[in-house]
Design a binder for these strands. Structure first.
Lengths: 353, 353
DNA sequence: CTGAAAGCGCTTACAG
DNA sequence: CTGAAAGCGCTTACAG
C-alpha cells in the first residue's frame, strides 16, 4: 500500500487507461486543439481517474521552454515589489506557470552572472522590475527568443514588453504639484542606485519640471546634503538616501538639525517619506505648512498614515493583471511583438502638501 | 557568429576539453569528493574556458531531486513574509538553489491541490511559513523523502524542521505585559484564518495569560465585535479582522463609535495595529493612556512610527540565516533528522502601552 | 578513481 | 486526427 503511493502515475499510465498512445496524451495536454473531442474526453477521464500530474521537469527538457517564469528581483521585497510579486505569482499559477526567484544585488557583476544560470532553466518568460538588464544580457535572451516583460515602468522606446506608468511623467506631475502649491526649494530624495532604470527617468522628470519654470537643478551627492540654494527663484536638489523608514527619519533629522530644510521633499519611496513624516510629527514640524512631503510610491501606507501623505495614485492591481496577460501572450506565441502599455497615474493630494 | 551563440556548451563539450568522460564531469559537479584533485582541476579549467552552465532541467530529470526549493506562500507578501522571502531567496541562491513560489489561497481544497503539482518539480526541499500542511500532504512528502522546513514558527512537537519563536509564548508575554501595566479588558485581534497554524498557538498563549490571572476568555466572531465584559476582573476577547492598514483603522473606528473600547488590544499583525494607531491619533484617543496597543510582528514600521508601537523584539535575520542552514543540511542529506530551533523573543516596550 | 550503458518522462519532428 | 522513432542533457547504478 505505502509502497504503491511512492510511484506517481506517468503519462504512459494515462495512455493505457485512455487506450491511446502516450503522444496523444502529451498532445492533449500541450495542444488540445489538435486532438479529437471524444479522444480528449477519454484522456481527461483517464487523467482524473489516475490522478496524473505532469512531471514539469521532464516536460522542460525536450520542450522549447519550461513552465517557469523567471523573476529577476531587486532587493527590498516588502513594499510595492512584494505586493506585485504576490499577485503576479497567484495570477500566473492559475495559468500553470511557476515563478522562480532570481535575486540580484546592486552589483553589476552579479547581475551579469545570473543570466546564464537563469537560461539554464529554460524559462517561458522573464519578468523584471526595478532592475535594468545589461545589453549583453538582453541580447542573449533575444537569441533564445525568451520574452522579457518589464513591470512598473513604461517607456515608449522600450525594446521589450512593458506595463507601467511613465516614471518621468510621475515625478514631473508631482513636482508641478509642489510648485503649484507654492513650494520653491524642492529636494528629490531617492536611492540613486544606477542599476535601477527608474531612477534616471524619475530624476529627468523632476529636472524637467524645475527647469520649465526657470529653476536650477543641483545635484548633491551623499546622504548628508546641503539645502537647495535660497538665492534662486526655484531650486531642485537631488538627495541620495538609503531605503527604509529609519533612513528617511534620519535624513530629515539631519536637514532639520543643520538648518538645511528645503520647502518641500519629493520621495521616490513611500517608506522613506513615512520615516521623514514621523520625524516631523515628533519634532514640532507641521507637514504641508513647515515642509511639503510627497512620495511616488502610493501604497496603502500613504493613505492610512495621519496626516495622509500626498502620493501618486496608481493602480498596481492593473499592472499585475495586464502584466500576467502579456506574459501569457508571449508564452503562447514566442514570436509575438512586444507591446508597451502605459497606465496613467495622477497626483493624489492628501494632507502633507 | 550569432548562430554559434545560440548553442550553449553542454557537459560533453566540457568533457572533451578536459579529456575525461561526461560522467566524470557530472561527478565533479555533484560529488567532487569522489574525483581526483588534478582531474577536478582540469575540469574546472574546462568549465571556465567553455563558459559551461549546467542545464538544471536535465539535471532534475534523472536526479532524485532538482535544485528547486518550493515555497508555499500565504497571501500577503508585503510585510514580514516579504522580508523573509527576500533574504531567504538570496541566501539559497548563493548555494545554487532556486526558490519557486507556490501561492495558496485560504482555501483548503486549493491547498491540497498544490501538492502534486509541487512534487512534479521534484523540489530539494519545501519551505512553509504562515501555512499549515494537511496530514495527507505531509504524508506524501514524507513518502518521497522531501524535507519540509517551517519558518517563523517554533513548535517543540513539530514533525518537521522548524526555525522560529514559540507563537504561544509570544502572545503570552505580550498579554502579560499588558496585564502588568494595568490593562484589564484586552482584545486579541487576528485574521482567524484556520489554515494559518500560528493563529491557534497565538490564541492559546493569549488565553493562557488571561486565565492564569483568573480572567475569562470569550470568543467573539466576526469583524464587528462587542467589547469584552466589564464585569469580570480580567477579560480577553478574540476579535477577527481582515489584514491590512485599512482594516485596522476601521475596526478601531467601529469599537470607538459603538462605545465598545477595551482597555488594550493585542494585534497579530503590525499593519493592522498601525492602522488602528492612525485612527486613535486622528480622533483624540491617546495611545497607552486611552487604549494600550501592541503587535506581535515587530517590523521596522513599529519602531519608526510615532508613537512607537510596543511589539515583539524578534530577529528575523537569524530565522533566515538558520533556516537557510537547515535547508542546505537537508538538501545534502535527505535522511537528516528534523531539528527544532527556538529563537527567543521578548517584549519591546515602546510608547503605545 | 574513472568509464560504458541505460534511462529519467516527457516532446518534437515526421509519417500515415 | 493519431502513432512509431528519436532524443532533450543530464545522473545513477554497475563495472573495472
Amino acid at each position: 500500500m505505502g509502497e504503491q503511493r511512492l510511484k506517481r502515475p506517468r503519462m504512459a499510465d494515462v495512455a493505457r487507461e485512455a487506450r491511446v498512445n502516450r503522444i496523444t496524451v502529451s498532445r492533449a495536454l500541450s495542444h488540445p486543439e489538435l486532438v479529437a473531442e471524444d479522444t480528449l474526453e477519454r484522456i481527461r477521464a483517464a487523467i482524473a481517474r489516475t490522478g496524473y500530474v505532469p512531471n514539469q521537469i521532464a516536460r522542460g527538457l525536450k520542450a522549447e521552454h519550461s513552465r517557469i517564469v523567471s523573476l529577476i528581483t531587486p532587493p527590498q521585497m516588502s513594499g510595492v515589489y512584494g505586493a506585485v510579486l504576490e499577485r503576479l505569482s497567484a495570477a500566473l499559477y492559475e495559468s500553470g506557470l511557476i515563478v522562480n526567484l532570481f535575486p540580484v544585488l546592486d552589483i553589476e557583476a552579479q547581475r551579469e552572472a545570473v543570466l546564464p544560470e537563469l537560461i539554464g532553466w529554460k524559462p517561458a518568460a522573464i519578468v523584471i522590475f526595478g532592475i535594468q538588464l545589461t545589453e549583453t544580457a538582453r541580447q542573449s535572451l533575444l537569441d533564445r527568443h525568451t520574452p522579457v516583460v518589464e513591470l512598473l515602468n513604461y517607456r515608449a522606446d522600450s525594446p521589450d514588453t512593458c506595463v507601467g506608468y511613465d516614471q518621468a511623467e510621475a515625478t514631473e506631475i508631482l513636482t508641478d504639484h509642489l510648485l503649484d502649491r507654492g513650494y520653491r526649494r524642492i529636494g528629490y530624495v531617492h536611492s540613486a542606485n544606477p542599476l535601477n532604470i527608474m531612477n534616471e527617468r524619475r530624476l529627468s522628470g523632476f529636472e524637467k519640471a524645475i527647469t520649465a519654470r526657470k529653476g536650477t537643478v543641483r545635484m548633491l551627492g551623499g546622504t548628508r546634503p546641503a539645502a537647495p540654494a535660497a538665492d534662486t527663484w526655484i531650486a531642485g536638489t537631488e538627495i541620495k538616501c538609503f531605503p527604509g523608514f529609519q533612513a528617511g527619519y534620519e535624513l530629515m533629522q539631519h536637514l532639520h538639525e543643520h538648518d538645511r530644510m528645503p520647502d518641500a521633499l519629493l520621495y521616490a519611496s513611500d517608506m522613506v517619506a513615512v520615516g521623514a513624516l514621523q520625524y516631523c510629527l515628533s519634532h514640532g514640524l507641521t507637514p504641508a505648512r513647515d515642509i511639503g512631503l510627497c512620495a511616488v510610491d502610493g501604497t496603502e501606507l500613504t493613505s492610512v498614515i495621519k496626516p495622509g501623505l500626498t502620493s501618486l495614485d496608481f493602480p498596481y492591481e492593473r499592472v499585475v493583471e495586464y502584466g500576467a496577460e502579456q506574459i501569457l501572450r508571449h508564452v503562447n506565441d514566442r514570436t509575438a511583438a512586444p507591446e508597451r502599455i502605459r497606465i496613467p497615474a495622477k497626483v493624489l493630494h492628501r494632507q502633507t502638501t
